[in-house]
Design a protein around this nucleic acid. Structure first.
Lengths: 247, 247
DNA sequence: GGCCAAGTTGATCGTTCAATCAAGATGTGT
DNA sequence: ACACATCTTGATTGAACGATCAACTTGGCC
């Protein structure tokens, strides 16, 4: 079992010639992974047939089974790709636009709000979907899903640590990161169920209220640390992460 | 007493001789709904075949299609049943054990924590699972999923309204209910991904902190309303809702 | 006792699924 | 120019799927 996946002749995005959409003009393996990623996102893992992936990727079944022993290995490659894409596609654009660590968190959340807006609440968090669909199936899958969540947690925790001096001393920042992630995932879930972004926005608004109280408590209490004026809430809007065809 | 179903060439599952299972000795329709409910919960809707439902329920395919025109109508019946079960099975036991409205909310959350504990984090919120699996498929399904969430929201909102005088005046209680539900669903999702209840417990702990701050703010501010001493956090533990076979 | 509607049965339809295979195309090193 | 490993092709496999149907059994009512 050779550990392929060291391929990648050119960088993954901004391809040359860019003749059409995006996922063409890649080597077959990348095309399969990218196509499977989008289809898994839109329809789920179980509901997506290998046949459909092959048709959409313009490949044949033998090619798929040349690169991946089984459909599940293709899923593992997709999850690898999500982990690789998190920073450059989701986190970095927000961080480069917003400097304040707390606002960075809400900038990321706003990215998900925009995704709900754009997709009409028909597309959720790719990791969350897969987590609920197959987190208790095979261990390798569950482990990679957890690794993806850890990527999110780490990014949020970075912000919290950077804002540590503006937060109460006794706040558990790691637990707070779990909290933020829970609100995000639970909000997206409700938005999809109601086909409306309102529940997500309400949940994020309550999270904002919580952070306001945390910051105020830290500022009001013992020796008030230097409290910079809170910057403008959101300079402009966040990009939509994980596009995957507007359907 | 004709021993109907005297057939049984090979046993499909532990059979009558002990009708303890509670899902036996029901009319066929109820047995089908209950069996489908459990299987959908354990495996998801798409991954559960009609054949498997029939085998587990001890029914035949014709019976199913006598009661339900299609598999999706069976799902609708399952969702109806979840809505009917929410109060008597999940809410009422907590409410009868806990009087304080805020503690009632955390009592319900503790019920989900216990479910994670008992199932080894292998079983999530049934509504949440279905929401992410098929909220953008057929409208009738999505609508019933939303109705189920509304049942949860309403129960939580009742508690918040009952505690309205202990909360800040300007708090949006409806949004706060969405917030609580988001934390619950997102926490369960992470717990399943990590195969550990820790993320759920962390998120709930942060939610508790938020409520502490809300209550303190209301108590400290203008004309302090009578603030009863907060009762003991949890008298005893909440039951596990939606059991569905410990697997 | 006789009747009919309600309920149940199991065989079977056409389709789709993941996976396999032998054989052909491609390209790289020498 | 040659050889050989890598990669791609598309038909094919057997099993499982959702769904349908006509035939059969049961129970309540006159």
């Amino acid at each position: 079992m050779p550990d392929r996946r060291s391929r990648l002749p050119a960088d993954t995005l901004a391809d040359r010639t860019s003749d059409d959409g995006a996922a063409d003009a890649l080597d077959t393996r990348s095309r399969l992974v990218e196509t499977a990623r989008v289809l898994f996102l839109q329809q789920g893992y179980g509901a997506t047939g290998v046949k459909q992936i092959l048709a959409a990727a313009g490949a044949n079944s033998g090619s798929l089974y040349h690169y991946f022993p089984t459909k599940e290995d293709l899923l593992l490659a997709v999850l690898d790709r999500y982990r690789d894409l998190l920073r450059p596609l989701v986190i970095d654009p927000v961080f480069s636009r917003i400097a304040d660590p707390v606002e960075r968190i809400f900038g990321v959340l706003d990215g998900y709000r925009r995704m709900l807006e754009i997709t009409g609440c028909r597309q959720g968090c790719p990791i969350g979907n897969l987590a609920l669909e197959l987190s208790d199936d095979h261990p390798a899958v569950r482990s990679l899903i957890a690794a993806n969540f850890t990527g999110w947690r780490t990014a949020i925790l970075e912000c919290l640590d950077a804002a540590a001096d503006r937060l109460p001393d006794d706040v558990d920042r790691s637990a707070l990161a779990s909290f933020v992630l829970s609100v995000m995932e639970g909000g997206v879930m409700q938005a999809r169920a109601y086909a409306s972004p309102a529940p997500f926005e309400e949940a994020v608004s309550m999270l904002r209220d919580h952070f306001d109280r945390l910051l105020a408590a830290a500022a009001a209490w013992p020796a008030a640390p230097p409290r910079p004026e809170p910057p403008a809430r959101l300079g402009n809007e966040s990009p939509c992460p994980f596009p995957g065809n507007s359907r």
